[in-house]
Design a protein around this nucleic acid. Structure first.
Lengths: 209, 209, 209, 209
DNA sequence: GATGAATGAGGTTTCATTCAT
DNA sequence: GATGAATGAAACCTCATTCAT
């Protein structure tokens, strides 16, 4: 009874409000896209005053960063744990792809905000840009670590892992992003499909098929 | 004098100015990113007055649309001509991939503006969004037509072509976009690599390797 | 225990807190300048909550007024006592100048807040402006009373004392304010210098030098 | 007829509007003080739209800087020319004091904005603060150059000129600023009075009186 | 008394678009 | 056609003050 949430009432309320603001931002992001996120919109949606947003986030940029971070960090942690799991590589890959894919599906707008940026790099500078770059590198590094396992198991083409990384990332992104354009066209068991295409396309010569 | 430019002097001047504006916009896009394009910047770069931009383009949106269109339409035409070329599928694919890849490499900023949008779809409405959607569908359709040839030749997995389309498009996009993040990491002969990964990953069972 | 602090504990605490807030405000004023004083800054520095500031001061304006008042009132009282001290005028002047000068040196930020305002007079209205005007007049009056002694002693030019007041006040202010701009340029024994310049400049004709 | 203002109509209008904005700002400054200058106020007073202000001045800071600069630069030039004028020092001083005094009287609000700042120095940084510091140093330097002439003529105390500079600057500022507080008390021939006080107070020992 | 989250008016700045010349 | 000054809506952010706990 007295244990459940050690935090004092004030603190709990504060956190709840913070989450409400983030939820509102997510909603706007889904409905109006990244450029539709204005502090005023978020405030209206969250039913707070504009100034209140700034008691929780130092700037609009920080809010968006937190939005992405809340999604990305748990994902990264899950992905980074896989290589050490001892699973056979094929299962490891399947798990990896499934995890990324599910995250995409469930959070497409936020994921888009995360993935869309690298191409717009020149426009991003300052602390925010720096932090985003860190995210992308970590995302990348998770792919790299996975694929290294595949190489060491003799399943994937040895040598430079960058092409493999790009291939897998591209497949994952594409299956989500473009599918938006062709509604009603769900692709059955996309993760398995992605794994198969990737594996067959990247298998080391001589590796058993 | 002779036949090629039948247009009266006035008209030719007008077209030249229009191209100068578009060139200026491309330059800004490359240097400052999509958000760096302001009508005033474009005007300054093109050495025209702000108002003059509006003599050539009804709105900033239209200008950007034309920018994309000037890149995409010739590309589309080239891609759409391929299936009827009678080439063996593997060569046709190679040509397709090379064409898209080169366009990407040479016009990355504009290509980004074209490709980044679908995920932000909800944000785009009105005439502009409609026209962009048409572009994406045509882009898509070119892939589809190509891959149908591969299926008919018994080289690609039969059945739904959407997964194949997504795979190829994803590989192409990824090899360009993400490579930006890892400078100094040129991938030698990326088009050939993409073709190989795609083919091996999407080959019909029993098809000769 | 004994007599000095008759006040009950409650009241003493309250006063101590009030002083802590004022100290914090002084510190901010010194470090961040007058525009750097925000209620939140003061609260943070004083380690109180924002709302608590308002338990002690009706408004930010009142806080600043008290800040000035705490400095000015003891100064005024000291200055006002001088004319009745019976000292020879030259010593009286020296004491006056030294007192003002030391106050300036030790509390420059607050003094600036006090002295900067008259020129911005039009901007100041309401109760606060009224009280500030009272301060300036009292400051002025102290000069006037001092100089009257000098006139009555036949040392200073007789007649309108306003020019003398302005001269002395101007010398005092200038030696402090502008010295800020030329660091490393301490003026040795500034009070004596000010007295000498003022006296020589304002001496009654025929008065002994 | 065709000669009077070589500038094309457009340009003339532009300059006129710029001046109207500056006039409006001056008016606000006089009525509401330096903190009363908001871009919106200026725009309303000048009968322009807010955005229009920014076509003439990059920022509010620049506007204020121009306000000061328009006043100070001609003043500085006049003051800087005096030492080389060959006038006897007493006349040179009289001219100097009269010039500064008149400028003060005619532009008190702007002058206040210029003079009030040094004491608030900590708050001022960036390009704007830098430029202001340059102004103050130039103001200072003009005093210094004048007083050097007086020293070389054997009229002023030899040695460090800083105290002399401060004394003269202080007298000038004080006679203007504080006089505001005592309305209806015009000081007859203030410039002559300032000169006399300053000269008598700073005369070299043994110099003829 | 103390707390500190919430408020919202008000400030600066940007930029697509219009329109008189 | 070309010009470019003017527009004003809309964006981000700050901060003195209030009030429920």
């Amino acid at each position: 009874m007295d244990q459940p949430d050690k935090l004092p009432r004030r603190e709990r309320e504060r956190l709840r409000h913070r989450q409400e603001i983030l939820d509102a931002a997510r909603k706007i992001l889904a409905v109006r896209g990244i450029d539709g996120i204005t502090v005023e919109q978020v405030a209206r949606e969250a039913e707070f005053a504009v100034g209140s947003i700034y008691r929780h986030f130092r700037s609009k940029e920080e809010l968006i960063e937190v939005l992405i971070s809340e999604l990305a960090v748990p994902l990264f942690e899950e992905l980074e744990a896989l290589p050490a799991s001892g699973l056979p590589f094929e299962e490891m890959l399947a798990e990896f792809v499934r995890t990324v894919h599910d995250t995409h599906i469930e959070n497409l707008p936020v994921v888009r905000a995360f993935l869309a940026a690298p191409g717009n790099l020149p426009a991003i500078d300052g602390e925010f840009g720096e932090r985003m770059r860190t995210f992308w590198q970590r995302y990348f590094a998770a792919f790299d670590a996975l694929l290294r396992v595949g190489q060491e198991a003799g399943i994937l083409t040895p040598g430079d892992r960058l092409p493999l990384t790009l291939a897998l990332a591209g497949l994952l992104e594409s299956f989500n992003k473009w599918a938006l354009l062709v509604p009603n066209s769900t692709i059955p068991d996309a993760p398995a499909l992605i794994c198969r295409i990737f594996l067959d396309g990247s298998r080391a010569r001589g590796a058993s098929r």
